[in-house]
């Protein structure tokens, strides 16, 4: 009897920090944001509940164009990160010798420990008109006047892929690592060529890792702020920038909250769709890595 009480008490004690954290810092703030987003200022200090903030989003093409642009660019970045990252992850997990494997994996992680800001700063120094690449091309004589590589979509995409690709590679390496090599050999023995083995055996096996990587990559890209602004310049039109403008520049918290909700709904929808299409769940992908 006493033992049971102790068990119950310790369960309650363990639940306390979890509940405080999730309720006070995640659930309540989001409920507050939903309520705020439905509030409209009708006169100074007088508010009414309405859809005005959402209607403003629908009626102003700049806003939903920005959201769509953020969404498509994020999908593109996710796809590129997968295409570029998969061969690297495969090399680390399956081809590199046991000794170099750990080293390569560590090398992959190094940029992770440097802030977004410094990574973007590094790209600025490389890509700008007076930057390293432009100077180098001038020096070799391939170009005669300096070229500005910065402040365009390509720069934004390069910077974003660079920032998020590690979050793609890490879950991929850990799933591929758990794959038995004999499965691949069996595929070859049964007469499959490299492409068939890749398509029929390796990719299906790696699916949880692929989905986990894609989810994290997509969320990080769509929610990023620094990289698009620093590398894309004034016209980067990233949706987080709109949220910042509403909140800080225009001090329109109601509008900003509505935009925040829209970003959250939009990204959650894309992820839900991705999970449905790939037949995976959040618990066996992101939670595992």
């Amino acid at each position: 009897m006493q033992n049971k009480d102790i068990k119950r008490l310790s369960l309650i004690l363990l639940f306390a920090p979890f509940t405080l954290w999730i309720a006070l810092l995640i659930l309540l703030p989001h409920i507050g944001m939903v309520l705020l987003s439905f509030r409209e200022k009708v006169a100074p200090r007088v508010y009414e509940y309405s859809f005005a903030n959402y209607l403003e989003f629908v009626n102003e093409p700049i806003y939903w164009n920005t959201l769509l642009r953020t969404g498509t660019m994020s999908l593109l970045v996710t796809a590129l990160a997968l295409l570029i990252g998969f061969p690297i992850a495969y090399y680390i997990a399956k081809i590199a010798g046991p000794r170099s494997r750990g080293g390569l994996f560590l090398l992959c992680l190094i940029p992770l420990w440097v802030s977004d800001l410094i990574r973007a700063f590094g790209w600025i120094l490389l890509l700008r008109e007076t930057g390293v690449i432009s100077s180098f091309l001038l020096w070799t004589g391939l170009i005669s006047t300096p070229i500005e590589f910065l402040y365009n979509d390509v720069a934004v995409i390069i910077g974003l892929v660079y920032t998020v690709i590690l979050f793609m590679i890490v879950p991929l390496v850990s799933t591929l690592d758990g794959m038995d090599n004999s499965m691949i050999e069996a595929g070859y023995n049964l007469g499959g060529n490299g492409f068939t083995v890749l398509r029929r055996i390796i990719i299906p096996y790696a699916m949880p890792g692929i989905v986990a990587g894609c989810i994290v990559t997509f969320m990080l890209t769509a929610g990023s702020y620094l990289t698009p602004i620093l590398l894309g310049g004034k016209n980067s039109s990233w949706f987080t920038e709109q949220i910042y403008n509403q909140f800080i520049t225009r001090f329109n918290w109601e509008g900003g909250a509505a935009f925040g909700m829209l970003l959250l709904i939009f990204t959650s929808f894309v992820i839900w769709l991705g999970l449905k299409l790939s037949g995976q769940t959040l618990a066996n992908t992101v939670a595992k890595s």
Partner: peptide, 22 residues
């Protein structure tokens, strides 16, 4: 458990503004 994992997939900007608002 899923509730515990969710904060990781919420964009940081949104965590910031929602806590600011509350």
């Amino acid at each position: 458990y899923i509730l515990m994992v969710i904060p990781l997939v919420i964009p940081g900007v949104i965590l910031g503004i929602s806590i600011l608002v509350l």
